[in-house]
Each structure stands twice: as structure tokens, then as C-alpha cells.
Amino acid sequence: MKKILLVLLAAAMLTPMLATAASSIKLYEAPIDIYDKESLRRGAKNFADHCYSCHAAEFMRFNRIAKDLEMSEDEVREIMIHTFNEKGAPTKIGDVMKVSMTDQYAKDTFGTVVPDLSLTARARGADWVYTYLRSFYVDPDSPTGFNNAVFPDVGMPHVLWSLQGLQEPVYKTVIHGGVEVEEISHMQSIQAGKLSRVEYDMFLADLTNFMVYIAEPVQVERHKLGWKVMLFLVFLFFFAYALKKEYWKDVH
């Protein structure tokens, strides 16, 4: 028992020492508005252009996107559908959002299976997705040449670097458990991208907004239904109260 306690104590003391490059990046608040159809349409294009080559969203169908975002099926085909099914036939408007990349190819290329993004915004949160996409930085020791302050040692390359530009972390020294460690304080730009900082943030806001939408496509309908249910319950309350008074009016 004493040996176990000593091992646990040693591990607790070593943990701060091993975390010399721990991240202290706070999550930015994502400007999400699922009622903004223009933002969602821009986000759909951003997703198709920069994410959909590798990441599937198999819980979503193209014709559902066309319906919810008030787009014609031809618009969705032009913007989003550039893939083929297992038989080599063009993807149909009623198909789910699969990708051609196989799991084995992903393992050979990235060292891991590329995740499906259908529920990422719901599982991680919109703020996490938004901040994650802002937090790639140059790392010569990484196989991809980039690392991420929110998700250290992530296998995903920074596919948006040409838009965002290149940045590097600025570290600060803090004390954890009496041990000095370095944490990322903030990022500084070392090469400008095609978009300005404001434009890139707007680009990510639209992309994150679309990912929030595909994580729960019925949420707008759910919100509308919620108001109807609340109004029904208010009406039911007054009806039940009047009925109660009628039943108990002769009881003393």
C-alpha cells in the first residue's frame, strides 16, 4: 500500500514538470446564429471547399441542406457535391455526406482515422470548434509542420493556413505546484494570409455556424415548437384551474 501511495505521489509531482508546454488558451465565444440563412449558406460552401475532402458528415443529407437553407438542389450540387459513391457513380442529392477517403488511407497519411464532423459541434461545443480553427501555429517538430494550442499534437494539418496566414505562440512562465512551466500566452502573426484577421474570423464564424446546424438540423423547428408547447401549457393551466374551482366550489 505504501509503495502505491509513493508511486501516486511521485506521479503527481512529475505532472507539472512534464507539462512544460501546456496550453492556457481560453475559448473564444463563437458568434452563432442558426437563423442566419446567409451565414449558413456561406458556411456550407466553406465546409465543402475546405473540410469535405477528408471529413464526412454522414448524419446529414444534401437535400436536407437544400431544404433547410432555402437553396435549390442545383445550387447544392454546384457548391457541395463533388464526390462519387462506392460504385463510381456521382453522388446523388439524396445521399448522405460521405467522402471517398478510406480509413486505411487516412491511417497511412495522418496516422489516425479522420473523424466524421456530423456531431462535432454538439459534442465539443461551438466555442471549442471556433477557437480550435483559430489556434494552429507553426511547429517544425510536427509531421505536418503545424500544431494546435487547443488540441496539442493533433494529426490534422492546417488546411486553412493560406487564408489565415502563419502564426507562432508566445509563451509565458507560470508556477504550478512550485514548479515553473511555460504556457502559451497568445499568438503572434509571422506571415499574413489571404484574409485579414476580421475576414478570417467571419469565415470561421460561418463555418462553425454550419457545423452547429448539421449537428442538430431540427433545432430551429424545435425552438418554434417549444413556444407552441409553452402556450399550450399556459392555456391548459387556466383550463385546469377553472375546472378545479368548478369541482371544489361546494366543498367547505
Rank of each mutant, 00 (worst) to 15 (best):
Y52K: 11
T208N: 09
F110V: 12
S196F: 06
L9F: 15
V159R: 10
Y28V: 02
A12Q: 07
E183S: 12
V220D: 06
L5D: 07
V129R: 05
W128L: 12
V179I: 11
P16Y: 11
L40T: 10
G88N: 10
V212A: 13
L69R: 06
L133F: 15
V99L: 08
P16C: 12
C51G: 11
V179T: 14
N148G: 07
P157Y: 09
I25E: 11
Y35C: 00
M60T: 14
F47I: 03
E221H: 11
L207Y: 01
A44P: 01
A215K: 00
F210V: 05
L231K: 13
Y137V: 01
Y35N: 08
E38M: 09
G145K: 06
D74R: 14
K249D: 06
V229L: 14
E182K: 15
D139T: 04
P152H: 10
D139F: 00
K26R: 15
G155D: 12
K92Q: 15
T91S: 09
A10V: 15
V114Q: 06
G88H: 07
K92P: 00
G111Y: 08
V154Q: 03
V76D: 00
F235K: 07
L14F: 08
T112W: 02
V150W: 00
Y200Q: 06
L163P: 04
A240W: 14
L236Q: 11
F84C: 11
D49F: 09
K67N: 12
V154F: 08
K194I: 07
H55I: 12
V99D: 12
Y52A: 05
K45F: 07
Q188I: 15
K37W: 00
I81S: 09
K107A: 01
P157G: 13
